[in-house]
């Protein structure tokens, strides 16, 4: 456990510094003030990401799970097995636990890895099966996921 200020407090302090102290001094220089603004903006992205990344990953995975079923389901035990030294006994048995619970027990990096793999499966499936945006279930998932990304990367993007 780190001492205060939290990472978010620190990032906000840098944001303040950029806006209140740097910005006025580079006002006349187009490129520098543009880059300063981008930097300020990206700090905002990081702050929102720290706050919301984990719940959004869980939401995205649960949606991917209902789309992909077993294909997404399989991703979790696979990763667990790799991290265990002894071969898992219940390899062939169906997992009784709900996969949402399993997923939420993973650490942040594992969650990212699994969502990335599930996205790869979905992308391949869309391409191979020539799925069109008229497929409401897929479209809804994709749009919803994009909205959640936008909430972090650019909350001012009006939808």
């Amino acid at each position: 456990m780190q001492d205060k200020p939290t990472s978010i407090d620190l990032l906000e302090a840098i944001q303040d510094f950029l806006m209140k102290e740097i910005m006025p001094t580079v006002k006349e220089k187009d490129l520098l003030s543009f880059k300063t603004l981008i930097s300020w903006n990206m700090l905002g992205v990081i702050i929102r990401e720290i706050k919301q990344e984990e719940p959004l990953l869980e939401k995205e995975f649960s949606s991917l799970l209902s789309l992909l079923g077993e294909k997404a389901d399989k991703l979790i035990p696979k990763l667990k097995q790799e991290s265990e030294i002894l071969p898992s006994e219940d390899k062939s048995k169906p997992n009784k636990k709900s996969n949402n619970t399993n997923f939420s027990e993973l650490n942040l990096n594992e969650k990212k890895e699994i969502v990335s793999q599930a996205n790869e499966i979905l992308a391949n499936q869309i391409r191979d099966q020539k799925i069109l945006p008229s497929n409401q279930q897929v479209l809804n998932h994709v749009m919803e996921t994009l909205k959640d990304k936008l909430a972090i990367s650019n909350p001012r993007y009006s939808i």
Partner: peptide, 23 residues
């Protein structure tokens, strides 16, 4: 560069717009 790096986080804006227009 910060400009190039930041552009990567804008992809979803164009993805959203494309699907919005299709829809």
């Amino acid at each position: 560069g910060i400009e190039l790096a930041a552009i990567g986080r804008r992809t979803s804006e164009m993805e959203y717009e494309a699907l919005r227009l299709i829809n």
